[in-house]
Design a protein around this nucleic acid. Structure first.
Lengths: 225, 225
DNA sequence: GATGACGAAATTGTTGACAATATCATTGGC
DNA sequence: GCCAATGATATTGTCAACAATTTCGTCATC
């Protein structure tokens, strides 16, 4: 009978939640590459315990997002241009094969949905809302991988993207990246609609490579090396 | 002047070393999927402290090798056949693109080395030494990725392989897997020697898919579902 | 003999204190 | 004013004790 209220004895957020929070901070460039993440700071801002925070650090380090040095703690790892380039090559391979698989297994309804997202993105270009464009762009790429049902690849691509997420969003604000992306998407969609897996794969690879090229030129413009 | 001997105050192996040890145990099927890894046990066998062992668990969990449940600790994660299938699709994409890149950038010397490894593997078939064959097979695939210089992909493929490493080695003992692999490698090498990147990519993908098919039939034979 | 309640043992989660190291400010010398 | 040595502070690494939970054996009951 003694019903204990239990009253949410929630001592603090679990480690995965803390890891998510840090990830989101990095994606939002609230934490920038090279920045040190001191334990006490994260504890204060998340309410987690030290062990939880340290656990989160370990996991993020295993994901390649943080770097942990002896007695110096965790810091946001910064990807060199060379590494970003290799990373995009991996993305091209993975998303390329997904585009081909999508073409084979997607229903007409799936394809229609994909087209609708692409159309929404076009309106964003006119409205100049890069923020919304970035969100829809994520949805577009995600949908292709989701429909193929390959969670392993979806997870891999998501991880590969995290380190350059902030650069991606910045890139949409610059030059003609958005219009170029629209063109690429249209080419991919055309191949999909024509039931041409190889064509879709090729177009998707080109799209990813274009993204890298744009990022490279953006890097040159920003840091001029 | 008081030179302190310092006498190796090594209290125990660092966390990464413990993680390596666990990884090797899993690869050698000394630890099998589903098996629980109790902290005290690992501490006794590695000499590491509890925090170190727990750190190692965290990292391995992030790599997808272990599963950690609240108050139940770590256990070796078992990949379903469905997941293995998705994993092989990812490998096909990544190793395929590497085969193409290898064809483009490899020197004649690189290609010659690759051929030599393949030839050594053929002698293994005759000698029936599956162990050595497995080792050389790893070398062969690794070399292609190493020459392309894409460490990101090499790392990804290595991680993707770990969960099925023991199955892989088992497969070489069975049926005609080795001779089939030799054929595949020859086809890939032919394309490479003919400076045909697309052909090399296609052949590599087929090779990986064949590996999956063999693993699937092996699974059916073992567990008959 | 099967089943469920109960309690002891085993195992993991959490916290705090202390040790080792790095980082920073201060001081003294040039 | 600049630079190196020095000490104080901040930060991380490590360990041990305690709390929470699961797991396993025991026993009573049907």
């Amino acid at each position: 009978m003694d019903e204990i209220a239990k009253a949410l004895p929630k001592s603090g957020p679990p480690a995965p939640e803390i890891a998510d929070w840090i990830r989101s901070q990095i994606r939002a460039s609230r934490f920038v590459p090279g920045q040190r993440l001191v334990e006490v700071d994260i504890i204060r801002r998340t309410g987690g315990s030290r062990s939880k925070v340290r656990e989160a650090f370990q996991r993020l380090a295993a994901e390649g997002l943080l770097e942990i040095e002896e007695f110096r703690g965790a810091s946001v790892r910064e990807a060199s241009l060379e590494e970003v380039s290799q990373l995009y090559r991996a993305r091209a391979a993975l998303e390329g094969i997904c585009a081909a698989d999508f073409t084979r297994v997607a229903t007409d309804d799936d394809k229609q949905q994909l087209r609708e997202i692409a159309e929404k993105m076009e309106t964003c270009v006119e409205a100049g809302s890069a923020e919304q464009f970035g969100k829809l762009n994520s949805d577009w790429h995600s949908m292709i991988m989701r429909v193929t049902g390959n969670h392993v690849i979806a997870e891999l691509v998501s991880r590969l993207n995290t380190p350059v997420h902030h650069l991606l969003f910045q890139s949409f604000y610059r030059g003609n990246r958005m219009t170029k992306a629209i063109e690429d998407h249209r080419a991919i969609l055309d191949a999909i609609m024509n039931d041409d897996p190889e064509g879709a794969e090729k177009a998707m690879r080109q799209h990813v490579e274009n993204g890298l090229e744009f990022l490279t030129s953006l890097d040159k413009a920003l840091f001029g090396n």
